[in-house]
């Protein structure tokens, strides 16, 4: 069998290229900020920094695992080994040129990471994972180029805002105002955790990118940015999938080299 080379995503335009970059695990995403691990833990609000992880089962090595070939095949992630709880982080991405959008998050997570469960809706995207692994992943996702302080929200609940106009500082609407604009520093600062419990210290997540920069970085096709129809390959790819599925459900025996 010929080795299959993953192509990740078709297309020649910037949203298509960005999708490829985000999905390709060989590409190291640009780190744009460094929010400390303790602050990431605070933002998520599942435990206090320094507090021990809560366990839901004894470490795997201590337990008596059933004799299961699949269990032998899969190397458990660290949190599973230790019996951590499954916890979550959830992001909201504005339609107005957020760096990444919900489906691309799912594709990226599943392409780059192991041991997570992810759910995709129009206004929010959740990752669930064993707690200690989640924290590492969350830090990456807050630090890297898929996050913009103004257009990405860390929101465990009441996520409304992805479709709203931006505010006067260019921030995506948040009814619970988990983050505010620091006019002096010209940075976005979190004052509440992802479920709006006030933080005991401010957590700065940096300066928002300019709109021109975001238009280059986004994965979103838009009529006032890069229209999907301007990317012939992406358009053809979508039509081809639809066509093949249609034919497959109708008269699969008529396939001839499609």
């Amino acid at each position: 069998m010929v080795a299959y080379k993953r192509q990740f995503y078709p297309g020649t335009t910037s949203p298509a290229k960005n999708r490829r970059r985000y999905m390709d695990p060989k590409i190291n995403l640009k780190k744009l900020r460094d929010v400390s691990m303790d602050d990431v833990v605070r933002l998520m609000g599942h435990r206090n920094p320094g507090e021990a992880y809560k366990s839901i089962h004894p470490p795997i090595e201590e337990g008596k695992e059933p004799d299961c070939p699949i269990r032998k095949l899969v190397t458990p992630i660290d949190g599973a080994k230790h019996g951590d709880r499954v916890r979550y982080i959830q992001f909201t991405d504005s339609v107005y040129f957020a760096p990444i959008s919900p489906y691309q998050r799912a594709w990226m997570y599943l392409s780059r990471y192991r041991g997570l469960d992810t759910g995709t809706l129009s206004g929010r995207q959740i990752i669930e994972m064993r707690e200690r692994d989640l924290e590492k992943l969350a830090k990456e996702l807050i630090d890297d180029e898929t996050f913009d302080p103004a257009l990405t929200g860390i929101r465990g609940a009441t996520v409304h805002g992805h479709a709203c106009r931006l505010d006067e500082h260019g921030l995506m609407f948040d009814a619970w105002q988990r983050y505010v604009w620091d006019a002096d520093k010209k940075e976005v600062v979190y004052v509440k955790d992802q479920v709006a419990i006030p933080l005991d210290r401010k957590i700065y997540v940096g300066k928002p990118a300019s709109m021109s920069d975001l238009k280059k970085r986004t994965t979103i096709f838009r009529a006032d940015g890069v229209d999907m129809r301007d990317d012939k390959e992406v358009t053809m790819y979508g039509l081809r999938i639809h066509k093949l599925r249609t034919l497959g459900g109708f008269q699969p025996f008529k396939f001839k080299g499609e």
């Binding site: 105002q177 505010v180 006030p198």
Partner: peptide, 22 residues
């Protein structure tokens, strides 16, 4: 416009003041 509730209306922070600056 978009509603700014006086208190957090659901989730683990339910009931505490929202303190939205606007």
């Amino acid at each position: 416009g978009e509603s700014l509730s006086k208190n957090i209306n659901n989730g683990p922070a339910k009931g505490i003041p929202n303190n939205h600056s606007e």
